[in-house]
């Protein structure tokens, strides 16, 4: 759907991003992750045709942004870092104006504006001046503006920054539901947010793309399976027994919080037969040491991000 090929942007002598290439496939939510100043906003500004790249190419549905700007721009709804709102307009008249800009058929505009306002929960402020709205509502008008004209691609630049926790949850839920029938590219410096919403992650660091992978591949790196278990029994007996299993590589006791319950972190081989969980279950059954809890410990995006940026 969206493809960047070797995109570079220089502001004078400062190179903001260098040689960035990635694809956002149709119907996926792609997260652009990076620290402040990593080049996220520049990338999105180029992607949406706000500014042309110094070198490289942006393709929307196979069309070049430079030569087919009009068609490309019609396919993208963009919420910049600061929502582009006119304070002196009402929410309703503003959205009408955006629909006209996006070349929505004149007859369908009233219905379309209503639909967009319903999706974003703006009905009750429809006739208020945008300048009088709270930050959360302004952000929602920003999202509504991006939805006008029903573009297949949505580009959202840090959509949850500066909102209160409840609004953050609401906007995330909105993005998630929109993700069902849109291609969404959104940037964030919050790892947890990306982890919650995205199927693909692109990590930018100092203007360069250092990692592009699906969320699963990124957080399940390596061939080790990490388990965490709480077992009823004495640590001195359990640790040697667990270590004797062929599929177990390492066992590390964790801090004990409940007397009589041993907490351990177990690093196992992936893809053994029987699988590690079964082997552990059988062993502990035989020892009459009931498992109170056993869970797979996922590598967090945070770990992946730190690994990726540290190796640079």
């Amino acid at each position: 759907m969206i493809e960047l090929k070797g995109v570079t942007k220089r502001y004078g002598t400062v190179e903001a991003i260098r040689d960035i290439s990635f694809t956002a496939p149709k119907g996926q939510i792609v997260g652009l992750l990076g620290q402040n100043g990593a080049g996220k906003t520049t990338t999105l500004n180029i992607l949406t045709g706000y500014m042309p790249p110094t070198a490289g190419q942006v393709l929307v549905d196979g069309m070049d942004m430079l030569t087919h700007a009009r068609d490309c721009k019609r396919a993208i709804g963009y919420l910049p870092e600061k929502p582009p709102l006119y304070d002196e307009m009402t929410v309703h008249s503003y959205l009408r104006f955006v629909c006209e800009l996006k070349e929505v058929d004149r007859k369908t505009i009233p219905a379309h504006v209503d639909e967009v306002m319903t999706i974003c929960g703006l009905q009750e402020v429809a006739q208020r001046l945008i300048g009088h709205l709270s930050k959360g509502y302004r952000q929602r008008v920003g999202v509504a503006q991006a939805l006008c004209g029903d573009p297949p691609v949505l580009v959202l630049d840090e959509p949850t920054v500066g909102l209160d926790p409840r609004q953050v949850v609401e906007i995330r839920a909105l993005i998630k539901s929109l993700g069902q029938n849109h291609t969404i590219i959104f940037s964030s410096h919050l790892l947890s947010e990306i982890q919650q919403l995205c199927q693909r992650v692109i990590i930018l660091h100092r203007g360069k793309l250092i990692r592009e992978a699906s969320m699963d591949a990124l957080t399940n790196a390596g061939d080790a399976l990490m388990l965490q278990a709480s077992i009823k029994g004495r640590q001195q007996e359990l640790l040697p027994a667990l270590r004797s299993l062929p599929c177990v590589r390492r066992v590390k006791p964790l801090k004990q919080s409940v007397p009589g319950i041993t907490e351990v972190s177990i690093e196992c081989e992936r893809n053994t037969s029987p699988d590690a969980q079964t082997a552990i279950f059988r062993l502990l059954c035989a020892m009459d040491a009931p498992i109170m809890q056993l869970r797979i410990e996922h590598d967090t995006l945070e770990d992946a991000f730190l690994r990726a940026t540290a190796s640079e």
Binding site: N45, T48, G49, Y50, A69, R70, D71, K73, R74, I76, Y78, P80, K82, P84, L85, Y86, D87, V98, L101, K102, E103, Q145
Partner: peptide, 14 residues
Amino acid sequence: QKRTDQLLLTSPVS
């Protein structure tokens, strides 16, 4: 100043 040009320049208007 208000960055609303981002709306205009990313719309299909020349």
